[in-house]
């Protein structure tokens, strides 16, 4: 895309990271009768990571592991219980009013359900004009220009065909393209995509992932790609983080992670992937059973120990594992890896 260069933000220096998440916790109080405390959901529990400008990272985990809560906390939709989120050096919890609005313009958001993400009573032109209006771009011609550019960038060409339509007149893939166009309209420097293809037909998943990858490359966007499907990670991100029970248990460059998974949960996720080799058809693979951990009463010690095939009694079920780095650039939280 030739238009990409002009819309990309000023590149951050490689040294300091764009996003710095430090010991972030997002907990939700459960209440009975509106005031009695009935428990706490540890949706995001002590999560730390950095993200550089232009870097794409995947957060992988099963349903209910806290991935979406993490995304919403990073977007400023949930207030963190403790810890800090620093974006371009500024602490998110210190941002108020205009500064917070400016932050929202710099972070784009792509949701899981493309149809639900678009107000059904507005046409595409109006849907895309809304963020511009919110951020003070009221000049009609300027709006048209940016909307058309965004629509063309996401492959909805010619833009005039799409502008006047309503969301229900578009296919799921087209709807998701509109959602991506909306996320790009305010020229963000970071994009958070929360399961962007899990509700789409298998046939269009690759297209949408390719599109995300292309815009990420063109605009040098920092991308947080949240998914439960490790198979969609390989070609699109630089680094992957595995989340389990509200914690990040392992992170590594994506090739490293796929080739040398260290955490038994990561191994299990990889084992659950489809195997295209016909020789292996019908072969039974050992996949850990059990259920995702409760985030209200997480298991003591390592949160994975009740399902872990290599858990050690007396250690894994009583003491939380510390982070260690058995391979370079590949930290993991597991007692059994040294």
């Amino acid at each position: 895309m030739t238009s990409a260069a002009q819309t990309s933000p000023a590149p951050a220096s490689g040294q300091s990271s764009l996003l710095d998440v430090h010991r972030l916790r997002t907990h939700f109080e459960l209440r009975q009768w509106g005031f009695l405390r009935a428990g706490t959901v540890h949706a995001v529990d002590d999560v730390s990571f950095q993200l550089n400008a232009g870097e794409a990272v995947a957060i992988v985990g099963e349903s209910g592991c806290g991935k979406s809560s993490l995304a919403r906390t990073l977007l400023g939709l949930y207030r963190p219980t403790s810890g800090t989120v620093r974006f371009a050096g500024e602490s998110l919890s210190d941002l108020r009013g205009g500064a917070l609005k400016a932050y929202r313009a710099r972070v784009g958001y792509v949701q899981q359900d493309p149809y639900g993400a678009l107000p059904p009573f507005l046409d595409i032109r109006r849907i895309l004009a809304e963020p511009l209006i919110v951020h003070g771009i009221r000049n009609r011609q300027e709006q048209e220009r940016r909307i058309d550019a965004a629509l063309e960038e996401v492959g909805l060409t010619p833009a005039t065909d799409t502008r006047g339509k309503f969301p229900h007149q578009l296919s799921g893939g087209q709807q998701q393209r509109v959602v991506i166009a909306r996320a790009l309209l305010l020229r963000p420097s970071m994009l958070i995509a929360d399961e962007p293809v899990s509700m789409l037909d298998a046939s269009v998943r690759v297209e949408i992932l390719n599109l995300l990858h292309r815009v990420q490359q063109d605009h040098r966007l920092a991308l947080i790609y949240i998914t439960h499907d490790l198979s969609t990670v390989r070609h699109y991100v630089d680094r992957a983080m595995v989340m389990y029970g509200g914690k990040i248990v392992e992170q590594a460059p994506v090739e490293e992670l796929l080739r040398h998974p260290l955490h038994p949960y990561t191994e299990a996720l990889l084992g659950a992937l489809g195997d295209p080799d016909p020789q292996n058809a019908g072969r039974f693979r050992a996949v850990p059973g059990g259920e995702p951990p409760s985030l209200v009463t997480p298991p003591a010690g390592c949160r994975f120990h009740p399902r872990c095939p290599i858990a050690q009694k007396g250690l894994c079920d009583s003491r939380e594992p510390s982070t260690r780095t058995p391979r370079p650039n590949h930290p993991v939280d597991c007692w059994m890896r040294e």
Binding site: L75, L100, R104, Y109, D113, P120, P131, V134
Partner: peptide, 28 residues
């Protein structure tokens, strides 16, 4: 709870805008 309301918050729409332009028209 609609995702589009969440999206509106994420791009910075004000409370008044969300109520008057996104919630009310939905049930009109």
């Amino acid at each position: 709870q609609s995702p589009y309301i969440e999206a509106a918050r994420a791009y910075g729409a004000s409370n008044a805008r969300i109520i008057l332009r996104y919630m009310v028209p939905r049930i009109l």
